[in-house]
Design a protein around this nucleic acid. Structure first.
Length: 306
DNA sequence: CGAGTTTGACCTGCGC
DNA sequence: GCGCAGGTCAAACTCG
């Protein structure tokens, strides 16, 4: 994988298992397996800013939501897991089923293999399908920046997890080397081009891999924000001194209603006592720090690419 | 009847 | 150039 622009290159031979995956959700046991591990500065020797990961998520659900930063719309290759770092870098690891989830690359890059990003709709609305095809061909050289993607694993028996948004399935494909198909969804809201892919891990069939692409430009239809914010900001939940002043509540508040509210819906009651951040006495601080890439995924051995 | 799903065909990029 | 795999389209279908 080309990585000329990225300051960091991570070998794909280092293990990235579920415990090092940024958001490993376990709906059955009412835990977010890796939130604590992911944010825990004692594990990573450093910490991260709330904005680091909130960017690729739906900001429009937040009352303080703002214009999408074009700098985050970097190309990434198909089938990649992406996280956006504070300094606009992208952590990028392959999730394609043809590759192993434990055999991943983390890199900042503008992907050279940005696949087609079709824009035929405008053309087809005039009913001239052939014309649109031709125009499409002429446009293919104008590689449009692929939307940022963000993927996470969820332990669930349900493939398509409720996340508060309405999705229309527009495709399903068999995935190579996997008995489980990959489903393609598009946000049903007009002019919202957010997509997501859902597939089940063939290595761990209890795990669903959900990949979001793009950012919603509308409010979450069925937000559970209130619950999420209450829970995450509750001193009784985390302990009044356990959360540092820069605890990414905004990030979590943005994240959870959109991406995990089934979790809350189903387990809200028990979650009040059992959920999230196993070690609640941990000091959690997230100073703004650009040197975060090496710290995010400690199982990787990052190195400067020559 | 509208919204969502299914599914085969098609398009595109990439590796050989 | 060819084949493969990922991604998308769109007609047919299902469902409420």
């Amino acid at each position: 994988m080309d990585n000329d622009k990225g300051p960091f290159y991570y070998s794909n031979h280092h293990e990235l298992n579920q415990s090092s995956f940024p958001f490993f959700m376990d709906n059955h046991h009412s835990t977010l397996e890796n939130f604590q591990g992911f944010f825990d500065p004692s594990l990573h020797g450093n910490s991260m800013d709330c904005n680091t990961l909130s960017r690729p998520f739906d900001l429009s659900c937040n009352s303080t939501s703002e214009v999408i930063d074009e700098n985050y719309k970097k190309h990434i290759s198909a089938g990649d897991l992406t996280m956006i770092s504070e300094n606009h870098s992208i952590l990028n690891s392959s999730l394609s089923s043809s590759s192993n989830e434990a055999d991943q690359v983390v890199t900042e890059e503008d992907s050279a293999k940005s696949k087609k990003d079709k824009q035929p709709k405008e053309c087809e609305e005039d009913g001239d399908h052939e014309k649109s095809k031709k125009e499409n061909k002429t446009k293919k050289k104008e590689k449009k920046a692929r939307e940022a993607r963000f993927a996470f694993l969820t332990k669930s028996e349900v493939d398509h997890l409720e996340d508060g948004y309405r999705w229309r399935k527009y495709g399903q494909k068999a995935v190579k080397n996997s008995p489980y198909p990959r489903s393609y969804y598009r946000c049903t809201t007009q002019k919202c081009n957010v997509k997501k892919r859902v597939e089940r891990s063939f290595e761990d069939p209890s795990t669903v891999i959900t990949t979001y692409e793009g950012q919603h430009n509308h409010h979450c239809p069925t937000t559970l924000r209130g619950n999420a914010i209450t829970m995450f900001s509750s001193p009784s939940l985390f302990g009044s001194t356990s959360i540092g002043p820069s605890f990414p509540q905004d990030f979590l508040a943005q994240l959870l209603p959109s991406y995990n509210n089934q979790y809350f819906r189903n387990h809200h009651e028990q979650n009040q006592n059992t959920m999230l951040f196993h070690n609640q006495n941990q000091q959690l601080q997230f100073p703004r720090d650009n040197g975060l890439l090496q710290d995010l995924l400690p199982s990787f051995q990052g190195r400067q690419k020559p």
